[in-house]
Design a protein around this nucleic acid. Structure first.
Lengths: 198, 198
DNA sequence: AAGTGCAAATTGACACTGTCAATTAAACGG
DNA sequence: CCGTTTAATTGACAGTGTCAATTTGCACTT
């Protein structure tokens, strides 16, 4: 039945326009930010007419959601690999923090897009599932830790997620021009985990 | 000399168009979000031509920066009052957390706008100064606390700011559909401060 | 007090966006 | 080989930011 062994869609006129649009969108996102990702700019980059994408993405929200989903799978994979490489629970949490920071600094626009709920179809099942997968990585690492000072396991997990997301966001948004941060010596995120754990 | 006792600018054709535009912008922001704040929509709401605002705000970025500045003074005042009402250092930090959460839940779009560095002239001195003032409130409260587990005072302050900003952001962005949070019993933010302090 | 100068506001235009409707092109199933 | 279905194109509309040219009206100087 399936003519081609590779599961590419191989659509009518263009060779897998959907994948090409996502690739173009990622390129625009990385180089010029979220605002540069427009339906028409992606269509131009791929070389199709300005309304061609409507067959694969009903509106801009759908395109951005697909991009965010792609970014989130990369983000999850990076965090999961970092956690797997560490052996102690504390080491896993540290590794996730470091990996999240590295991801956001390497691709700040991708990180921002993932949390722009106003632009995304965040209620979409696939998006929810991928969000859950990202949280699960942290959850898995934190589950090996004894919650300090009588806190519940859930509270510890929320605290870790909040700490990471808050710090990473402020780092890539330039808020540390006004809030002190240091680049020399022991990374700030390790010192912050000291205050939070054990 | 000054005809009106109130120190309004009383500009040429319109009575203080700048203030009216900011008021209209806040209204649009609160009701329909950041994207609804356009130069033309503000001009319409005030009843002037679509290009009139250019005399007071050279571009959209300047208008949004003025709005964010306004929001930030309110945010700082709320946090400062909350901290002043508490007596212990720990109580001040708790009060700031509670006030920040309350502000963001009452005016989610205002909170988001303050951190949208991509839309704002964040390098503007007035904006920098106001950002610093917000940080100073937290700094003042945290300075009374003994940094736990050998952390520096700076690290504790960054951790508190990150924890608050991360948690508040995820709350108003709906990330707690996938990350557990509880509304009954003791607020989560107090439990999180337990894990961070003492 | 009159008249000039300048800042504010208007009007019109341009390029860009998302989205829709109508149309054409192409590949599939029979 | 021919219809059907789907993809892609073309054209249009309303909306946006921003610029240029113009008009308006207050304020200050003479």
């Amino acid at each position: 039945m399936n003519r081609n062994p590779a599961p590419t869609k191989r659509n009518r006129h263009h060779g897998d326009l959907r994948a090409a649009l996502i690739a173009a969108g990622l390129d625009l996102l990385d180089t010029d930010g979220i605002d540069a990702v427009t339906i028409r700019a992606c269509a131009r980059a791929v070389g199709v007419s300005h309304a061609a994408p409507v067959n694969h993405f009903p509106d801009l929200r759908a395109l951005l959601t697909a991009l965010a989903l792609h970014c989130m799978t990369r983000f999850e994979a990076a965090n999961r690999a970092a956690a797997a490489a560490a052996d102690s629970p504390r080491g896993k949490v540290e590794a996730i923090f470091a990996a999240s920071l590295a991801f956001a600094e390497a691709h700040p626009h991708r990180y921002r897009l993932m949390f722009r709920a106003d632009l995304l179809a965040a209620q979409e099942p696939a998006f929810q599932a991928q969000s859950q997968a990202v949280v699960d990585v942290v959850s898995g690492a934190a589950s090996g830790l004894a919650p300090p000072r009588g806190a519940s396991r859930e509270t510890l997990m929320v605290a870790i997620c909040s700490l990471i997301h808050g710090y990473v966001s402020m780092r890539i948004d330039g808020n540390f021009e006004v809030l002190p941060d240091e680049v020399t010596g022991r990374p700030r995120y390790l010192a912050m985990l000291d205050t939070l754990l054990v």
